[in-house]
């Protein structure tokens, strides 16, 4: 379990960010702070999605063909 947590520490980081954002949205009364919280949550989800595309030793998918490129699929998700 701990090992799995360590390999997926990037995902765990985005969960932590997600919870920080959620805390801001729920606990703060200031509307601007709520909005900032929403933004943190949003960023955490994008970070999670982009992190899924990482391949060890990969390069950016738009560059010249090379074995082991990173997966392109998750990138556009973050556009929203």
């Amino acid at each position: 379990m701990l090992l799995a947590l360590w390999t997926n520490v990037d995902y765990v980081a985005s969960v932590v960010l997600f919870c920080i954002g959620l805390y801001c949205v729920i606990a703060k009364n200031n509307l601007i702070k709520k909005f900032i919280g929403l933004n943190i949550m949003e960023t955490s989800v994008f970070a999670f999605i982009v992190a899924m595309g990482v391949v060890e030793g990969g390069t950016h998918p738009s560059w010249e063909p090379a074995p082991g490129r990173r997966t392109p699929t998750p990138y556009p998700r973050a556009l929203s």
């Binding site: 995902y11 959620l22 929403l38 999670f48």
Partner: peptide, 24 residues
């Protein structure tokens, strides 16, 4: 509208996160 936006945005992000889990 703002109250709706806050609730709605949280729920959208939950849905997106779950879609991410399924995709992963």
């Amino acid at each position: 509208g703002f109250k709706y936006l806050i609730m709605g945005a949280i729920s959208s992000l939950m849905v997106l996160f779950s879609i991410g889990l399924l995709y992963a």
